[in-house]
Design a protein around this nucleic acid. Structure first.
Length: 815
RNA sequence: GCCGUGGUGGCGGAAUUGGUAGACGCGCUGGAUUUAGGAUCCAGUCUCCUACGGAGGUGCAGGUUCGAUUCCUGUCCGCGGCACCA
């Protein structure tokens, strides 16, 4: 009867040991080199942990443990990103205050995370909803405000009249509220914005400084979306004003046959001719009812209406009609375009639909068939000013663009400009469960920031969290809290009722981990200098753009103000892939394919779960869960146990002798492979190497103690509970956590002989074993003497002999 | 549509610079042990064929090369993100 290893005893035992001995407590000063390894901290949802969380956490834990064994002072903290919509929705439905529900969720998450044996320094645990934490989130907001990076603006939000509240995009489904199915409209409301666009260039350029996957960098570049072009002013004689458009193709100005404004462009009402005002208003209404997503997503067919007005094309003085259409977005560029149907796909479709003229100004395509948008192969035509003083005919578009911009500039019609896709960050939320924005409004309209000494501005306790009905946050229901009277001057102020978005707390949490107890500062600058930057940051790919971009933005502001010492917060980044359900689909309650880590830990133990998630495949890739696969890992750990421990729980098969050369080779090959794989974060192959070494032990009667020890050390980062248990059975009284990582020596990896492949015309025909000192001629002779080879070579002319040392011989014969 | 990413046995995957494709694990097959089952151990397991031998094979079609999973061109499919960005 082969005993199962007792993970139910071992795992809680060592978790308790680590807790009581504060094994993983980390200090801010050390002789050791530092290593800061960070997980994206979780939102503690009511559903508890799912198996996707431990994937990233296991990877960072393995590396943290490995780095400790290599002599690094490792900072590896965990905390909670606990503000957010679900707790507030739950409060509205049940009356349970978000702080209570949040505390409950955190307790569950913490219990689950601790059951997996991660080596966090729990003394540094933080919680974004703790006033001791968000006091500093508010402080950073004030710094942004002082720097002129926070401003108020009227911005359209999803307004639901029936619910009397503003909805997040995810709460709106097909233009209706998710709750109740009520209509939702776009309504402008006063909002706080953060001027992230002021940092666009640096956010773009400094991607050079970080060691991130190219694909993530590319996504951020695309999000920032820098594009070079020109602003061009078109006069509108009818109203004595002008409209400015942005274009990347000023060379095609002569082909601009009409102009399109976004329906909400401020000039639309002024330039709409009386007889068109009905249709224009109707069109604006319809566009306003669509969300931005609907406008872009569903508008496969072009639509639009003519305003009745005309603009003057500056390059040829021609009058062109002005239309409005929702394919032009107010939020990008100037909200107006010059339409060049011959050389832009969208304009081409629109012109075809409404039978507008199409004028070719770049030759090389067939504009009867499609818009010609090539920038390198075309040649400019039909592009001369009426007085003949300026032409770009005969030029390549890339040259023509430069020349045209110059001409526009010297004639006062426009100038070169850089446009970003990136928009300013809409920072305020009409919610209760978020950080209050530390701002006062005076009735004269002035805006006054709170003093540092007034922080934290805590959330008022509300008996019931319910919508204000006006679209403002539920905070306006706290009448006393909202009103502030200055006792000295008698002035009356109203508090800002908006709160911050969930992103705020996660924008700087990596800094608070450095110095979480500090009540005087967000963090001590000396401590910051010691730990920053984060050496390795691991989290889900869904945060590839927004979270990482926002955090980089705040970090750069803090850098400019001298509060942090590095330009970039996260040196190296890895995005783990999704763990899919057994059906290969994304895990979700509705599909019924969710695996609960508690169940896995209960049946197989935490070490098995950790190992299995790492063995599934490369960390970055998405991969499906497979329940019978986990059995294989469980068997492996049981085999490890039986290799070391007998049925009575005593260490067994232990020998004091030195390992022989064959075993030494296996051991050192394993050290090398596992170490290399650690550096490359290639844990699946590291684990298979441990399996190979363990299989080698299985065939031995006695195992030398030194060999056992090295195996346990290599296993320790992956299966820490089992490793601690075996380590203690090898009669060590202290934790394995800080034992030095084994080193390999090349001498054991060198063999006396090796195998060589022999190919004939590229096909494998035989393999031979040769000694290290064999010469090329000796090996070739040996190869040719092989019967299997001779069969294909004899009687044929040898054209070539390819000899790759240590690897193969390829004999090329005339066939 | 665009951008990113991937496509290798029945399944998850391995193959660090172009050099013996399929490591390791799962599953499956046979055997040992067992009253039986489970567990454990041993052996086999890419496909096809005329089978002690040979042919084919890394989504598909070409190309470069003595030699391609790896490099190049074209093409198909899956996944993720974005979505009229001027």
């Amino acid at each position: 009867m082969a005993a199962k290893y007792p993970h139910h005893e071992i795992e809680p035992k060592w978790q308790k040991f680590w807790d009581e001995n504060k094994t993983f407590k980390v200090y801010n000063h050390s002789e050791k080199p530092k290593y800061y390894i960070l997980d994206m901290f979780p939102y503690p949802s009511g559903a508890g942990l799912h198996v996707g969380h431990p994937e990233g956490y296991t990877a960072t834990d393995i590396l943290a443990r490995y780095k400790r064994m290599q002599g690094f002072n490792v900072l590896h903290p965990m905390g909670w990103d606990a503000f957010g919509l679900p707790a507030e929705q739950y409060a509205i439905q049940t009356g349970v205050h978000p702080s209570l529900k949040t505390a409950e969720n955190i307790a569950t998450f913490k219990r689950q995370i601790k059951s997996l044996g991660f080596s966090y320094d729990w003394d540094r645990e933080i919680n974004t909803t703790d006033e001791k934490y968000y006091r500093w989130t508010q402080w950073i907001f004030l710094k942004l405000f002082e720097k002129g990076l926070a401003y108020e603006a009227e911005v359209a939000v999803n307004w639901c009249e029936e619910l009397g509240t503003v909805l997040a995009n995810e709460e709106v489904i097909d233009g209706k509220s998710e709750r109740g199915g009520f209509p939702v409209v776009r309504k402008p409301m006063r909002q706080w914005m953060l001027k992230i666009t002021a940092y666009a260039d640096r956010l773009l350029d400094d991607l050079e400084l970080v060691d991130w996957p190219d694909s993530i960098k590319e996504m951020q570049r695309n999000w920032i979306g820098r594009s070079e072009g020109a602003r061009v002013r078109f006069a509108i004689p009818g109203i004595g004003d002008s409209v400015t458009v942005f274009t990347t193709r000023p060379d095609t100005l002569w082909g601009a046959t009409y102009m399109v404004l976004a329906p909400e462009h401020p000039l639309v009402s002024r330039l709409t001719a009386d007889e068109y005002s009905g249709v224009v208003k109707g069109y604006q209404d319809r566009a306003g009812r669509k969300s931005e997503l609907d406008r872009t997503d569903l508008a496969k067919e072009k639509s639009g209406v003519f305003t009745g007005s005309y603009a003057v094309n500056p390059v040829n003085g021609k009058e062109i009609p002005i239309w409005i259409s929702d394919y032009v977005l107010m939020s990008y560029g100037t909200g107006a375009i010059m339409a060049v149907p011959a050389h832009d796909q969208r304009d081409y479709e629109f012109a075809k639909l409404f039978e507008l003229p199409i004028v070719e100004v770049v030759s090389g395509g067939d504009i009867k068939q499609a818009a010609f948008i090539e920038i390198e192969s075309g040649i400019m035509i039909n592009s001369t000013t009426p007085d003949g003083s300026f032409t770009i005919n005969g030029l390549k578009p890339s040259i023509a663009i430069r020349n045209t911009i110059e001409w526009l500039g010297s004639n006062g019609f426009g100038e070169a400009t850089i446009q970003y896709k990136l928009r300013d960050w809409l920072f305020s939320r009409q919610r209760y469960w978020g950080e209050p924005i530390p701002i006062l409004h005076h009735e004269d309209g002035s805006v006054i920031p709170l003093n540092d000494s007034d922080l934290p501005l805590t959330l008022p306790v509300l008996d019931q969290i319910k919508p204000s009905g006006t679209g403002e946050s539920p905070l306006v229901n706290a009448r006393e809290w909202m009103q502030v009277v200055d006792l000295q001057s008698g002035m009356v102020y109203r508090r800002e009722s908006n709160t911050m978005p969930q992103w705020a707390g996660s924008c700087w949490y990596y800094l608070r981990f450095l110095d979480p107890e500090n009540s005087k500062q967000g963090w001590d600058p000396e401590i910051e200098k010691y730990w920053m930057p984060v050496d390795l940051y691991i989290g889900g790919a869904e945060h590839a753009v927004l979270h990482l971009l926002y955090a980089r933005f705040w970090h750069k502001v803090l850098y400019d103000l001298g509060y942090v010492s590095t330009k970039e917060p996260f040196k190296r980044l890895i995005n783990q892939g999704l763990i899919l359900g057994e059906d290969g689909e994304k895990m979700s309650k509705s599909r019924g394919n969710v695996i609960n880590p508690d169940d896995v830990v209960n049946v197989y133990g935490a070490d098995t779960l950790r190992l299995y998630e790492m063995f599934l495949g490369p960390l970055e890739r998405s991969k499906p869960w497979n329940t019978s696969g986990i059995e294989g890992i469980y068997r492996f750990l049981n085999r490890v146990w039986r290799n070391f421990v007998d049925e009575t729980g005593q260490i067994t098969r232990l020998s004091d002798s030195e390992p022989d050369l064959g075993l030494m080779r296996e051991i050192h090959a394993a050290i090398k492979k596992v170490t290399d794989d650690m550096e490359n974060i290639s844990f699946n192959t590291a684990i298979s190497q441990l399996m190979i070494l363990n299989n080698y032990f299985r065939n031995m009667d006695l195992i030398p103690k030194s060999a056992m020890e090295i195996f346990v050390l290599l296993l320790a980062p992956f299966a820490p509970h089992l490793a601690e248990e075996l380590w203690s059975k090898l009669e060590y009284m202290h934790s394995i956590a800080y034992e030095p990582w084994p080193k390999y020596s090349e001498e054991y990896l060198v063999k006396n002989d090796y195998e060589m492949a022999i190919q004939v015309n590229g096909k494998l025909r035989d393999t031979i074993t040769v000694t290290n000192d064999a010469s090329r001629d000796q090996i070739l002779a040996l190869a040719k003497s092989s019967e299997k080879v001779a069969k294909y070579v004899s009687g044929k002319a040898i054209l070539k002999e390819i000899f790759i040392p240590q690897k193969l011989i390829n004999i090329v014969v005339k066939s």
